[in-house]
C-alpha cells in the first residue's frame, strides 16, 4: 500500500522547478515534506494531482501508473489534495462541500467533526480559517480517500486551532497515507512519523522525524525556512 514518486521533474512557466523528486508514502504514516521557500514543495503536491504538468518521472499508486491520468481520475483513484487555503468551494454550503466528494452519509461524515454540525447550512466563504481547514479534512475523511496531500495545514492558525487540527490529522492517520507540507517545524514534528527534505527541487534526505535534526542536509535544506514561515509561494 504505497504511493510512489520517482524521478519527478516539472516546470512552472518554462522554468524547471522540480529536478529529481523521489519519495514514497505508506498507509497509516504521516510524512512531512520539508524545505525552505521555493524548494518545490507545493509544486510536488500539484504535480501528484496533475495540476502541474509532469515532465519526466512516474507517479504510481500501488503499482498502477497515474502519471497520464487527468486530475479528476486521480481524485477518483483516492488522491485528495488540500491546498493551503483549504480548497473548499466558497459558494457552496458546508453540507454541499461534503456531499460533493462524500462516499458515506453526511451524518456519519461529520461524526468526528462535530463542530461542523451547526454550520452545515453556512456558505463556506463565511467560515473562519480554522473552520475551513477542518471542513477540508472532513471532506477528505468523507471521501474515503487513501492518499491525502495537505499543503501547509498550520498556516495562519491560532495555537488552539492547531491542536484541533493535529487531532483531526491523527484521526485520519488510521485510514490514509498523508504527505504534509509544513513550514512550522514544531507542528510537523508533532504530527509526522517521517520526514523528506527537499532542496532546490531535489529530495535530498529522508528518515524518521525524530532524527530530523541529525540529518546532514538539515541546515542546507531548512536554512531561512523558519524565518520566512509566514509567506507563501
Amino acid at each position: 500500500m504505497s504511493l510512489r514518486l520517482s524521478g519527478i521533474r516539472a516546470r512552472i512557466g518554462g522554468v524547471p522547478v522540480l529536478h529529481a523528486v523521489d519519495l514514497e508514502i505508506r498507509n497509516g504514516k504521516v510524512t512531512a515534506l520539508l524545505g525552505r521557500n521555493g524548494a518545490g514543495k507545493t509544486t510536488t503536491l500539484r504535480t501528484v494531482l496533475g495540476l502541474t504538468e509532469l515532465d519526466a518521472g512516474e507517479i504510481t499508486c500501488e503499482g498502477r501508473d497515474l502519471s497520464r491520468l487527468p486530475t479528476w481520475r486521480r481524485a477518483r483513484e483516492g488522491l485528495f489534495y488540500v491546498p493551503e487555503d483549504g480548497g473548499v468551494f466558497q459558494d457552496l454550503s458546508v453540507q454541499e462541500n461534503l456531499k460533493l466528494s462524500a462516499r458515506m452519509p453526511i451524518a456519519q461524515a461529520i461524526e468526528p467533526f462535530e463542530e461542523l454540525g451547526p454550520l452545515l447550512g453556512r456558505r463556506a466563504a463565511l467560515l473562519s480559517g480554522g473552520e475551513r481547514k477542518i471542513l477540508a479534512l472532513a471532506r477528505a475523511y468523507a471521501s474515503r480517500s487513501e492518499w491525502l496531500l495537505i499543503d501547509e495545514p498550520s498556516l495562519g492558525l491560532a495555537p488552539t486551532v492547531l491542536r484541533r487540527l493535529a487531532g483531526a490529522i491523527q484521526l485520519l492517520r488510521g485510514r490514509a497515507a498523508m504527505l504534509i507540507v509544513e513550514q512550522n517545524l514544531g507542528f510537523a514534528q508533532s504530527v509526522a512519523d517521517d520526514y523528506v527534505l527537499l532542496l532546490d527541487g531535489r529530495t535530498v534526505d529522508r528518515g524518521p522525524i525524530d532524527t530530523l535534526r541529525q540529518s546532514s542536509q538539515f541546515d542546507a535544506a531548512m536554512h531561512f525556512g523558519q524565518s520566512e514561515g509566514g509567506s507563501s509561494q
Partner: peptide
C-alpha cells in the same frame, strides 16, 4: 462547484 472553481471541482473527482 465547477462555476466556483473548475480546478477544485476536478480535484473533487
Amino acid at each position: 462547484a465547477g462555476v466556483d472553481s473548475q480546478t477544485l471541482a476536478e480535484l473533487a473527482g
